[in-house]
């Protein structure tokens, strides 16, 4: 069976660190607990476990700020 691999690109400056994508991700790929903040001071989201991403788009679908762009390939 083909396996899906995904990647999420974060528009760091737009992210407000609301964490809705983090709790939505079924693969627990995303996190924002790193010390880094964007220019507005928000802890922006990033792929902490990129290997587990399937590119399901759920994170982008719930993101209120349109921060996330999702890519997917079959391998």
């Amino acid at each position: 069976m083909a396996k899906l691999k995904g990647a999420v690109v974060v528009d760091v400056e737009r992210c407000k660190g609301c964490e809705l994508c983090i709790v939505t991700c079924p693969q627990k790929v995303l996190a924002n607990k790193a010390a880094k903040v964007n220019s507005k001071g928000y802890h922006y989201v990033y792929m902490e476990n990129p290997d587990d991403c399937t590119g399901c788009t759920n994170c982008a679908v719930v993101c209120p700020d349109g921060v996330l762009t999702v890519y997917r390939i079959k391998i």
Partner: peptide, 29 residues
Amino acid sequence: IIKPENLVYKRTECLTDKTLSYCPGCGHG
């Protein structure tokens, strides 16, 4: 993976580039 041909979701171009004025996590966005 991050190549145009693999794109599955991006923000619609019918939204402007302006950052939304809503609070983090607000459903308005």
